[in-house]
Design a binder for these strands. Structure first.
Lengths: 206, 206
DNA sequence: GACTGGCTATGTCAAGCGTCATAGAATACA
DNA sequence: TGTATTCTATGACGCTTGACATAGCCAGTC
């Protein structure tokens, strides 16, 4: 095995990021939360916090991507989407609307390293890198959705737009539900989105 | 005048929050960014950072709400929505995709005060309050959209769901555009949303 | 001109942060 | 068994943070 400590740290970091954001998640929080040794951080992540954040984004992105792909190809677009939303809803409920999305957190909350010299140049390179990673994840999710739509015969351009819309709605809805401490925004968005998707698929031949 | 210093601080805080998130925005950053005196913070915001954050959320929420209402009632739902999206797009472009939404930041990035006693109880009350404020803002925006849709004859239940969808898409799209450093996600979402809205309005009589 | 009260400037403080160094434990292989 | 390598534990460091205290400025008013 390649040390489960490392994996626990990554998963724990992703979890904390999804709940609190990037900067509200300290490395000490991560080791507390995962019951892992603090000294191991330097060992497993020699590049420090940015590296841990990056791995957490990749990890969470891939986990969702795999699940989305599975459910879409097994159940088709409509039922698959419904199943995916249901799992998101359950996660919101079981965590009392605390859990969000670590990738969204990276896209919204800028990482702030040490302010190096004079506060003039923040750690912009790291932030750009994290944003790139978040973009890769978003693109990956869109791609999964896109392929599912095309698989059911939808034209490429329309499918691309719809895939973007779906990802945007999911991310935005997470924020609304957290603020509302309710799944109602998710329910409303789901209803409308299912309508849109089924109409689009029904007209694919035109 | 009731001291422009206070207002500049609030607007500056909202701006920084929208770019960096809640915890990456320090009070010292705000005074640097707005060229306001550091010592005045305790004077204008005796409750400290939480108070400044709260006022920033209210300020930004109201500003958007007013603009959205104006444009929707002057131009109607479709053209008004288009105009609103256009202004968001311009803002993204002129800030090189740095500016986001301070309300979204509050919903994603948890405020962390001093960890009081033993790290067990974070500043949960303050965070709940900020989330409530964010929820009020989101609700307000949805209400503005809802009224515009009803004004054009849409049935209440459908209008409610669409209003939620629109707000969710706008917030989610901000994140996608920031990560992509591109307005393409906004463009795609806008196209689909205009389609949905015009179809819904066209069928209002059924 | 002196007084006064709202504002500004600057320094100090405890606490938390990420990082690093160093020492100890555990594990794997000969 | 011995030893090398990998992992864990703990403390120290330099820094930033929000909060506070104290002193100075600068209108207005009598």
């Amino acid at each position: 095995m390649t040390s489960t400590t490392r994996d626990k740290m990554i998963a724990g970091a992703a979890d904390l990021m999804s709940r609190r954001g990037v900067n509200a998640t300290s490395m000490r929080d991560v080791v507390r939360h995962t019951a892992t040794p603090r000294g191991s951080i330097g060992h497993h992540f020699p590049d420090g916090k940015p590296q841990l954040l990056a791995e957490a984004v990749r990890f969470a992105g891939q986990r969702v991507s795999v699940r989305l792909d599975k459910v879409l190809s097994e159940l088709g677009v409509i039922a698959g989407f419904r199943a995916f939303v249901t799992s998101r809803r359950r996660r919101l409920e079981t965590t009392q609307f605390e859990a969000g999305c670590p990738v969204l957190a990276v896209a919204v909350d800028h990482y702030v390293g040490e302010t190096s010299d004079k506060g003039e140049t923040r750690d912009e390179a790291t932030q750009q890198h994290l944003l790139d990673l978040a973009h890769d994840v978003f693109t990956d999710w869109q791609q999964v959705m896109l392929l599912a739509l095309k698989r059911e015969g939808l034209e490429a351009a329309r499918a691309t737009r719809l895939a973007t819309l779906v990802v945007a709605v999911i991310e935005g809805t997470v924020a609304l539900c957290r603020a509302a401490r309710s799944t109602q925004p998710l329910n409303h968005a789901q209803q409308e989105l299912e309508l849109i998707l089924s109409e689009a698929l029904a007209r694919k031949a035109e």
